Amino acid sequence: MREGMVEGVHHGSALVLGPDRSTLFQAGDAEVAFYPRSAAKPLQATAMLRLGTPLDTAATALSAASHSGERFHLEKVRAVLGEFGFTEDDLRTPEDLPFDVAEREAWIAAGRAPSRIAHNCSGKHAAMLATCRVNGWSTADYLDPGHPLQRAIADTVADLTGQPIAKVAVDGCGAPLFALSLRGLATAIGKIAAGGPETAEGLVAQAIRQHPELVAGTRRDVTALMKAVPGLIAKDGFEAVQVAALPDGTAVAIKIADGADRARKPVLAAALALCGVDRAALAHFSGDANLRVTGTLADHSPSNTESRI
């Protein structure tokens, strides 16, 4: 909005669940399946810990990351690979440049070619290789949907979401991509955030909270948000997908239909405000002060209840 006139409209869906999985707010369709892209990485990380992969806290955070390709990201990926007897050549990520603009420009200026480790999913892939090593599984085909690793991850995704996987595709990094509903995704991230300290879910949540810069990067909005809101875990995904959850399991899941990142951030801020997060902590993420998010609040009869920031 600008001076009372609409400049742009983004359609999408958003869901806020309480700790008991009750619906606190809903906009759009929370039941239709869609591809959560990298927002599903905390679920995949949980699966790998359930399979007994002995990752330290930083490596666990990186296994759930879409990292920016900063030096500390790449050094940790190399450390994980080396610990389990692998090299960069064992990764099956596409060759890529760092995700972060500044890192990408420096990479190009240095005359460096795209590489597998620079891909933003290399931390997840290093953890996948480690999981295969621990369980005695083959590694050259670890991305095959029929591989024991990917079958186990699919089982964990279904368990955490409480729903069957609607469709399996291939993500941009080459790994299997599971179509889920917004409700299933919110349910899963809420379980992870509220997981006990000795559970795989709890260990993933602890790692994300302790190392938000590994989950994204020093110049990323997701990292800044987790630092601004104590205890929050958050993960974004391509095509404007976002999940976030508080330690009590209150959870948010968002999908902007046109994939617009400019809508993702203020909608997330509006949803977190409905969760009781201090609006002052969200001010940097709310965008246009005249944004209107329209949906249905629990215990409210109007179908166009508005949440304003």
Rank of each mutant, 00 (worst) to 15 (best):
S303L: 15
R183Q: 11
A39Y: 07
G69R: 08
P197W: 01
G136D: 07
A45M: 05
P114C: 07
V77A: 06
R308G: 06
D20Q: 15
R92P: 00
I208M: 15
G136R: 12
M48Q: 15
T305F: 09
S138M: 09
T57N: 00
G237W: 12
A127I: 08
D159H: 12
R116H: 07
A127M: 14
I208V: 09
D144C: 02
A175S: 11
H211T: 04
A298Y: 13
D261M: 11
P212C: 04
N304T: 11
P145F: 07
L214S: 05
T93Q: 06
D144L: 02
G249E: 09
L214P: 03
P164T: 01
Q163G: 00
L274H: 04
H73K: 00
V241T: 08
E3N: 15
V134R: 05
T305K: 00
R112V: 06
L185M: 11
L225H: 03
A47Q: 04
A200Q: 06
L225N: 00
P266S: 02
E88A: 06
L74N: 05
G28W: 13
S301Y: 10
V77E: 02
T57C: 01
G196P: 00
A270Y: 02
A27I: 05
K191P: 03
T93P: 03
P212R: 08
A110L: 12
A194R: 13
R151M: 12
L74Y: 06
G4H: 07
A251Y: 07
Q210K: 09
A126D: 03
P36R: 08
V252D: 06
E239Q: 13
E103F: 02
G52V: 11
S138F: 10
P19N: 03
V157K: 03
M1C: 00
H119R: 02
F178C: 02
S307M: 13
I208C: 01
T23E: 13
Q26V: 15
H11C: 09
A58D: 14
V252I: 14
A79P: 06
E95M: 12
A140L: 10
D258K: 10
G123I: 11
A257G: 04
A40G: 07
T187D: 13
T250S: 04
R151F: 04
G85S: 03
R308N: 04
A216H: 03
V267E: 00
G249K: 08
P42M: 08
G146S: 07
A240H: 10
L129T: 05
V134M: 14
L149R: 00
A130L: 14
R264D: 01
D144A: 01
R104S: 11
D89H: 09
A47P: 10
G111Q: 14
F25Y: 10
H125M: 09
A257D: 15
A59G: 10
N120A: 14
G259S: 04
Q210Y: 06
Q206T: 10
L232E: 03
L17P: 02
G237Q: 03
A240M: 11
L81T: 05
A257K: 15
P148I: 08
A39Q: 07
A39M: 08
L143E: 13
R50K: 15
V170S: 03
L177Q: 11
E103C: 03
S181H: 14
M48S: 08
M5V: 15
M1L: 09
R21I: 01
S303V: 15
T294N: 01
E88N: 04
E75K: 02
A126F: 13
V293T: 09
F84M: 09
P164I: 04
A234F: 07
